[in-house]
Amino acid sequence: MISIRGLYKSFGDNLILKDINLQVEKGETTVIIGPSGSGKTTLLRSMNLLELPQKGTIKIGDKEISIDEKSKIKQNVILALRKKTGMVFQGFHLFPHKTAVENIMEGPITVLKKSKQEAYSKALILLDKVGLLSKKDNYPHELSGGQQQRVAIARAMAMEPEVLLFDEPTSALDPELAAEVIRVMKELSNEGMTMVVVTHKMSFAKEAAHKVVFMEQGMIVESGTPDYIFNKTNNERLKQFLSIID
């Protein structure tokens, strides 16, 4: 589903991603873990080109983009890739001037050119799925953080993406509110949604991931099944990281 080859990214002299190679299978949940500053968020944001890497190849579904330092990527190529992905942010980023249901309808109407009725009925189904049908006419500031994040998930799903990207979706939430977001994410994972999740919630990785990727200093140091990563690895850095985080 996603195939990343030879990805490099730097901010100025600071090399953030070094020769990243990653394969994400269709229908699987891939969790990226690692210490702060290891490049996991940058890697995730590169997948829908919110960050533009300097070099490498990104393939999502049947859309492939090769990036090198010289050629400039066209806007329509970027948009085509983004349409295949949905993104959920740490800070939710709901549109504050739109109600919950309008937030979800925005993409289908503006980008997919769907009719209002079609977008509306679809939005209601998604709101129901994240358990917030009763909040459809509320503005984001009237919702709790957990509710906002669930609306954000529905907003991303409304574009019918082939893959959902989660950037530390529960880091800004109290444990209680995080739990309701995690519940929705697990459901999606069980239904066979392809997901890439950057998180510090090891419990989510253990229970929902098909594959766990450990990053450090801009490189993928170790990857494998949750069982391998959490119980069997011989990698010293990974063991150290896991011992600190638990």
Binding site: L79, F89, G107, V111, A156
Partner: peptide
């Protein structure tokens, strides 16, 4: 984040600006 959220659902810069 508002620009990025708009971009993440496939909006162009002009659409993000306007809407």
């Amino acid at each position: 984040g508002q620009w990025e959220a708009a971009a993440s659902i496939g909006m162009t810069n002009i659409q993000a600006l306007k809407r």
